[in-house]
Each structure stands twice: as C-alpha cells, then as structure tokens.
C-alpha cells in the first residue's frame, strides 16, 4: 500500500466510523459525514446528468442541427425543461404545470400497460395450475397452497365489503399468507444486510487496521 492509498483508506475509515457513530447519538462527526455525502452525491449526480443526459442528447445534437435538421425537435423537451425552471418565478411558476402534466401523463401511459401485463395477466396465468401435470403429489400440494394463498390474498385486498362471514374468513387466511411471506422476506433480507455489515467490517479490519500496521511495521 502506498502512502496515498493509505491516506484515502484512512479517509474512508473515518467516514465509515463517523456514520456508525450515529448508532450512539447524533454528533458532529455524523454531521460532517452526512453533509459531505449529500454534497458529493448531488455533485456526482449533476455531473452524470450532464455527461449522460444533457450533453449527448441535447447540446451535442443541437450543435449538429445544421447537418441533421431533425435534431431541432430536441428543442421541444429543452423548452419544456426550461418551464420547470420558472418555478423560481412567483409570476410565471404556473407555466411549470404544463411540464408536470406532460411528465405525469407520459409516465402513467407508459407504466399502465406494463403493470397490467406483469401484475394482472402474468399472475393470473400463473395461477391457472394444471394439477394433472404435477410431477409428484407433494408438488401438487405446493401448487394448491400457492393457489389458495393467491385467492385469499386477493380477497384480503377487497375493499367494497366488510370483512365478515366467508369473506372475512378468507381474508384472514389471506393475511396469514401475507405475514408468512413477510417473515420469510424479513429473514432473507436481514441476512443480506448482515453480509453488508461484514463487508464494512472486513474493510475496517483488513484494509484499514492491517493495512496501517503493515505500512508502519513492514
């Protein structure tokens, strides 16, 4: 490890420990790390937006608009983007609503067909299980459990009727399925978080502590 690498390792270790110090209570080290990471991330995102958005898709094509007239169409989103900036004007901030309406409309239009396909059509199809084609009795039982869980969960999210009688019983089965699913998901995700902690501890022990020791004592 060179001296410069050691320096940056110390910076990373300091920031890691500063963030972890929040576990004790809010303090000046956490505030330094918090403001630093927010500021750096905003600067980074601005740079990304410039180099991956504005420059290649707007300013660079506009500079070539003499050769390719169709590039002038890019002035339309540019103009709509400028309307956003009018939010800082008290007199003309209402103009930004055109852009907001357009963005909301396009977002809904694009997402609705895909949501219907992924959340309605595919899941309905997957629930149509052919029990005559199951590889084993156990597989058939598992499929039946999934089917009952799917229908009971759908009933739980039925808002037009009070959950009483058969509907209430089915909804209760549904919430049991939901909670079992959440429990499994909780355990799975906690294990993933523990692996993230292990990664950070690995950095602190091997890269920072051991790296510093080897740098000083060889």
């Amino acid at each position: 490890m060179t001296g410069l690498e050691l320096f940056w390792t110390w910076v990373a270790a300091f920031l890691t420990l500063s963030i972890y110090s929040f576990l004790y209570k809010d303090n000046v080290f956490y505030k330094i790390a918090e403001h630093l990471v927010v500021g750096v991330s905003v600067g980074y995102i601005f740079t990304i937006n410039w180099f991956q958005g504005l420059h290649p898709y707007l300013f660079h094509p506009l500079a070539k608009s003499g050769q390719e007239p169709i590039n002038l169409l890019r002035l339309i989103p540019f103009f709509l983007g400028l309307l956003f900036l009018l939010r800082i004007s008290r007199k003309y901030n209402w103009l930004s609503r055109f852009t907001i309406a357009l963005v909301m409309g396009i977002s809904c239009g694009v997402s609705i067909p895909y949501t219907i396909e992924a959340r309605l059509i595919e899941q309905t199809k997957a629930s149509m299980i052919d029990f005559t084609q199951q590889p084993s009795i156990w597989a058939g039982i598992c499929s039946a459990i999934i089917l009952v869980g799917t229908i009971a969960t759908l009933v739980f999210f039925f808002f037009s009727k009070e959950h009483k009688g058969v509907l209430g019983g089915t909804a209760r089965v549904g919430i049991v399925f939901i909670m079992v699913g959440f429990g499994a998901s909780f355990g799975y995700t906690v294990m993933a978080r523990v692996s993230l902690l292990i990664g950070r501890l690995n950095f602190l022990i091997n890269d920072w502590a051991k790296g510093t020791y080897h740098f000083i004592f060889g």
């Binding site: 595919e122 149509m128 005559t132 039925f158």
Partner: peptide, 27 residues
Amino acid sequence: MFLIGCIFIGLVTLNVGFAGFKSLFDL
C-alpha cells in the same frame, strides 16, 4: 373479482384438458 373468476375458469378448463382459455393470457 373478474380475475378470480378467470383463475377458476382457467383451473377447471385446464384440468379437463382444454388449454385454450389459459392461452388467452399468453404474452
């Protein structure tokens, strides 16, 4: 309710050997 109905129809038709209804949900 419509989707639950479709699931039941799909289940019945598929298990009596008719896969045509399920194929309406192909993507």
